[in-house]
Design a binder for these strands. Structure first.
Lengths: 172, 172
DNA sequence: TATTGTTATACTCTATAACTATA
DNA sequence: TATAGTTATAGAGTATAACAATA
């Protein structure tokens, strides 16, 4: 208890002071957890293939779906179109992603992995999955469905909160 | 299913191809969740007080403990000493944090909130706590202990993995 | 007019190492 | 020699807006 709170208690002030305990604060805990997990995982693809998180997401998305437009990649990997655009450009320069025009809508293009891109994907995906498995291994199997539900709810709720704040600048 | 997998199935290849589903991949889900939560929360202190996440953590840590050295702040808020140093410097310039020399060890100093800093803390902490409460509200009460345990385990495990990788560069 | 995607800009954030002062 | 903290540097990542092409 810090000085001020000790004083409050001593003085018998009825309003309990609010103490925010960082180590129990959910946003902080989520942030630390996600950062550490991301850091550990990124060693796999950053050190091996010299690509960052956005490029990794594009690679994995194309590995999962085969062919996609930039917009679709952005939706599926929750990335802004500029981030997708730059990641795709980098992967194209490395000959890991190929582009094919959509004749029905020339604004967009169909993106897919090249054979080299698929090779990396086939090599990296099992390692990443194994990493994910090892990670989940430390969570009690009985707790896993709850974790799954909680992450879903928290993600939806914070996305909604962010959207609300963006729409209503007065709340800031 | 993408082209290659369809081919594999058609050819009757026995080795099932590994498909990494981003939306089910725990590291990705944690990252998206934490980013959205952090984004929503930071509106509270970034827009109100013009400070970033590191400064916020220092403020909250000092609000919680009253007096601390830079090193202690770093440990408690999982921040590197350079990040702590710069955050403290910024908060000092804004007269929100004060520094008092430790006569027993002149390398470090005792840091604490100024009255102005405490005022901001008293104003912001309840808002942050309310935010955290609203967030947790969407999680089924029955799922909360599991979420708590899971986050703890995942954080410990990934910290350990990162430490292992840092020690053993051959694994990269 | 709206949408897809790219580019430019400026800004913030980060990691690392080098350094100072003290122990 | 080791530790607490600061500063320098460079690189990475970010957000925003402006833009071009197409619908």
């Amino acid at each position: 208890m810090n000085k001020e709170n000790a004083e409050r208690v001593q003085a018998g002030t009825d309003a309990e002071p609010v103490i925010l305990k960082l180590e129990e604060f959910l946003p902080y805990r989520l942030n630390v957890c996600a950062t550490l997990v991301s850091q550990a995982l990124s060693r796999i693809y950053i050190d091996r293939y010299r690509i960052g998180v956005p490029e990794w997401r594009v690679l994995v998305t194309l590995g999962q779906y085969g062919v996609m437009t930039g917009k679709q990649i952005g939706i599926h990997s929750t990335m802004h179109k500029t981030k997708v655009s730059r990641s795709v450009a980098l992967l194209e320069r490395r000959k890991l992603v190929a582009r094919r025009a959509n004749r029905n809508d020339l604004r967009e293009a169909f993106l897919s992995l090249t054979p080299a891109g698929e090779e990396i994907y086939r090599e990296a995906a099992p390692i990443a999955l194994e990493f994910g498995r090892q990670l989940l291994d430390v969570v009690d199997p009985a707790d896993r469905p709850a974790l799954d539900r909680a992450l879903k709810r928290l993600t939806d709720r914070s996305a909604q909160l962010t959207a609300d704040l963006a729409k209503d600048p007065a709340h800031r």
